[in-house]
Design a protein around this nucleic acid. Structure first.
Lengths: 333, 333
DNA sequence: ATGAAAGCGCTAACAA
DNA sequence: TTGTTAGCGCTTTCAT
């Protein structure tokens, strides 16, 4: 037997012997009703299993109860973004919000604005038309990492990737590496730009020549292997390899073996993005844990604060990230 | 300047010189209006950038426009589930539906039923209290894989894992393996039960003794390594290792090396769940591609058909899966 | 401290 | 073929 009739506010009100208004005020806790009636109403509500109809509520309040999330189109390849999404969904749910994934709308001609109260942009890429379009919408926007070439919008959650990379390079140095090389994505993303900068600065300070190979953002691991191979053949005395893109370090492992080197011994290897693949590689690969789930949650959190006015526009929050040392940077001591 | 006033149905109607109803009928395509006015209304709608207010629509139609998705609590560890979710979200979006992730509600005492029009259960585990609760809700339910010990609910999308495993075992046999072993999850999931059955049948037909180690569903890769190690030391003449759980095969690689064996040469290795980690392992690991994204999409699709009555209750759909041979099962020919 | 009434934007029923 | 009216469930005036 299907549920006969959903329990509405009126059901509760009648049962508790009060008006719609009072019932509403009691349940939403506006502090307008006496504690006594409030308790009574709440009790009957729980008893009847009342669940507010969010469509009606949203209609009345002229909000959607939904936030939008846009990510670069590398989704399925990336453990990082998957976790980021779940963190954001979690946090949204905790605030009673839904989350809609905003696709870049390859199909539709004029990408329609989604019905959302605000937007989170994960790793906004410079030159991304969809991102530009969203920014033009005047909706509250929080980004994860800065949008290259623009001021902070309503809010930003970002990490100090340059500093973290320098910690990683110091760690490699401690393990004996003197000529570290870097495989990194091109700089449309603030993250990649940060990494490049941190690396170059470190090299300057340590008076070593930068050895960089750049691959397309989101190109994934196919591009990483050739880049690593090229790097190792061009500079055979490289004693440490740092890979930026998610998963690239794992893809470099076969290349390293093919070059007759041994990861973790005569060639240190590290990744700027941690993932299960890094932990389970052989040898396990040292990586920077970007804590994507927390990052996603914090972006959503900040957006809610912007929405309710408790965070001023332009708020910037630093999301801490951490080095996870593993066998791949053990060296020979 | 914030958007002055959202464009509503009335705006469109007035602009097109028709009534609310006609505008509505024109835009929803009920076939009540003349083609001429229909075109005119649609044109003004696009011109004004009209976006229907889904809260109002849902309120009126007495639906939520949302489907629920419940998964076993192994989410973050599993590439499979991540993809599954995105497939379902995609499909839902294509039908104008939102998707709410249903958590097992560790926090709340009495797990509240979510406001959804129907539910997809991914890999429902026997004995899962949250799943039982959802099933008791009388909401339309579609499962991915059968719910152990129960009849098909409103619909099921499932794959023939036993058959696929037999194809895999034949493949190993062709590559010279005669004594294959299996690491699999315990049988609360229909998937794992299927695998166990397929393996035992194959063994019986080929007159070899089954060599199985069982680990907890969702325990991830920590449990897989010891199980594999135990298997190899108990049966040193094992010449092929098949791992069920997502990622377990990659975790087995170090164990295999430690045992002095070489994966793909004197010990074939395969996984029952494909993932990027399998493709990028060294050597790349043969696996069964479960096509999770498509599976998620098909579950959502079937649920929609159940909701609009075009699929009869109890509908069962087979989701094809495929073996992806890689170097890890090359053997010595 | 509480009620009554209006109305959010939409669609289904009833008219014409 | 089209228009008018009512009402989905809720919150917000405005009144008491």
């Amino acid at each position: 037997m299907r549920e006969s009739r959903p329990v509405t506010l009126i059901t509760v009100a009648r049962q508790a012997g009060v008006s719609k208004t009072t019932a509403s005020d009691a349940l939403t806790g506006t502090g307008r009703v006496s504690p006594a009636t409030r308790d009574r109403v709440m009790q009957t509500a729980t008893m009847l299993g009342y669940v507010p109809n969010s469509s009606a509520r949203h209609l009345r309040r002229a909000v959607t109860g939904t936030i939008g999330l846009h990510l670069p189109e590398v989704l399925t390849r990336s453990d990082y973004y998957m976790r980021f999404v779940f963190g954001a969904v979690d946090q949204a749910a905790a605030h009673g919000y839904d989350l809609t994934l905003i696709t870049s709308g390859h199909g539709s001609v004029r990408p329609r604005l989604p019905r959302v109260d605000g937007i989170v942009l994960g790793d906004p890429l410079g030159g991304d038309a969809a991102v530009e379009h969203l920014i033009g919408s005047e909706l509250p926007i929080v980004t994860c990492e800065r949008f290259p070439g623009r001021d902070v919008l309503d809010g930003v959650v970002r990490s100090e990737h340059d500093a973290a990379l320098r910690v990683l390079l110091d760690h490699l140095h401690d393990a004996g590496a003197r000529r570290p090389a870097l495989v990194v994505s091109s700089g449309e993303s603030d993250w990649a730009a940060d990494l490049g900068r941190g690396y170059r600065e470190w090299c300057r300070e340590h008076r070593v020549e930068p050895r960089i190979r750049t691959i397309t953002f989101g190109s994934g691991t196919e591009a990483a292997a050739p880049a690593a191979a090229d790097l190792l053949s061009a500079h055979p005395d490289t004693d440490a390899l740092v890979c930026g893109p998610d998963g690239a370090a794992a893809a470099a492992l076969p290349v390293i073996r093919a070059a007759g080197r041994e990861a973790g011994r005569d060639l240190l290897l590290a990744s700027c993005v941690d993932s299960p693949a890094m932990a389970e590689a052989d040898p396990p690969i040292t990586a920077i844990d970007l804590r994507p789930r927390e990052a996603g949650a914090r972006c959503a959190e900040l957006l809610f604060e912007v929405l309710n006015g408790s965070a001023p526009p332009g708020t910037e929050r630093i999301h801490p990230i951490a080095l996870v040392p593993r066998a791949s940077t053990q060296g020979t001591h």
